[in-house]
Amino acid sequence: MDTKQLQETSKFLSYVLRHEPQAIGLQLDSEGWADIGALIAGAAKDRRALDIALIQAVVSSSDKKRFSISDDGLRIRAVQGHSTPNVSLQHIEKEPPEFLYHGTARRFLDSIRQQGLIAGSRHHVHLSQDIPTAIDVGQRYGKPVVLKIEALRMHQQGFKFFQAENGVWLTNHVPVLFVLEEEQKAI
């Protein structure tokens, strides 16, 4: 399998497992799991050739660990980033490190300064444990900026944090008060 095929399949899986399962007639349970057989059949109706080997290659080669296959090998899910309303992953609450980072594009800063970080169409705000990962995330949206978040102080004031299987930190909202403006790093 070539890199292009893996990337295209990963994007397709992200689309149907995070946002639009109904686009191929796929059903997700409340934890985001989909039957792999139904995924392959739905993809075929959409004229996409998927098989178990390609799905496993995408899951195992993803450096961001976006997907998980069930222990029995029959189901797959995206580990976070869902916007579909019927999925509500039950992540375990964890105490975050002192600081976490959020990569974004410079054009979103005015909105962030007014509202803080909001989940938007996703279920959670996504935070990174390190600056290089946050830079990678920010670059997806334009000229990247990394915001430093006072995660532990938020947690101490009652905000809940969770960590997805792939290491991404999740919270419902980051008020402006916890975004360290002076710590922004323009890249």
Results as ranks from 00 to 15, higher is better:
Gly103Gln: 05
Gly138Met: 10
Ile149Thr: 04
Asn86Ala: 07
Arg106Lys: 14
Arg106Glu: 15
Phe178Lys: 03
Pro175Leu: 11
Ser111Arg: 14
Leu117Lys: 04
Glu98Lys: 14
Lys143Cys: 02
Lys94Trp: 07
Val137Met: 13
Phe178Gly: 06
Gly116His: 11
Ser70Ala: 15
Tyr101Phe: 15
Pro175Asn: 11
Thr84Gly: 01
Pro132Lys: 10
Lys94Pro: 04
Gln129Arg: 11
Lys160Gln: 13
Arg122Ser: 14
Gly142Trp: 11
His126Asn: 05
Asp136Ala: 14
Leu127Ser: 00
Glu95Leu: 12
Arg153His: 13
Asp71Cys: 05
His155Val: 01
Ser88Arg: 10
Val79Ile: 06
Asp130Val: 10
His155Glu: 10
Leu170Ala: 05
Thr104Phe: 01
His155Phe: 15
Glu165Gln: 07
Ala134Glu: 04
Ile135Ala: 06
Gln139His: 07
Pro97Arg: 08
His124Ile: 06
Val137Thr: 07
Val176Cys: 12
His124Pro: 05
Asp72Val: 14
Gly103Ser: 07
Leu117Met: 09
Arg153Lys: 15
Val174Lys: 05
Gln157Phe: 08
Gln157Leu: 11
Ala78Tyr: 03
Lys148Ser: 13
Leu170Trp: 04
Trp169Gly: 00
Val168Trp: 00
Glu165Tyr: 03
Glu98His: 10
Val87Phe: 02
Arg140Pro: 03
Arg77Ile: 03
His82Asp: 07
Ile92Met: 12
